[in-house]
């Protein structure tokens, strides 16, 4: 199953992922996204690509 991994060190909390896919990403109190499973690949691909800091990675 596809997972999304968030690199907390790289994430700047821009929140672009949450805007692209609010059903999957929810920023926590630190401004870092929590990922709600299951992940629909079609939905998260755009978000992963759109991340301005490259903090999101898709893993199989």
């Amino acid at each position: 199953m596809t997972r999304v991994v968030v690199d907390r060190e790289v994430c700047m909390g821009a929140g672009v992922c949450e805007m692209e896919a609010p059903e999957v990403f929810e920023l926590d109190a630190d401004g870092v996204p929590q990922v709600h499973e299951p992940v629909d690949l079609a939905v998260v691909e755009t978000a992963v690509r759109a991340c301005p800091t490259g903090a999101l990675q898709l893993m199989d």
């Binding site: 700047m12 909390g13 821009a14 949450e18 920023l27």
Partner: peptide, 11 residues
């Protein structure tokens, strides 16, 4: 940035 980002989340 992490401090201020909290005030600018889409939510």
């Amino acid at each position: 940035r992490r401090i201020v980002a909290k005030a600018f989340t889409p939510r």
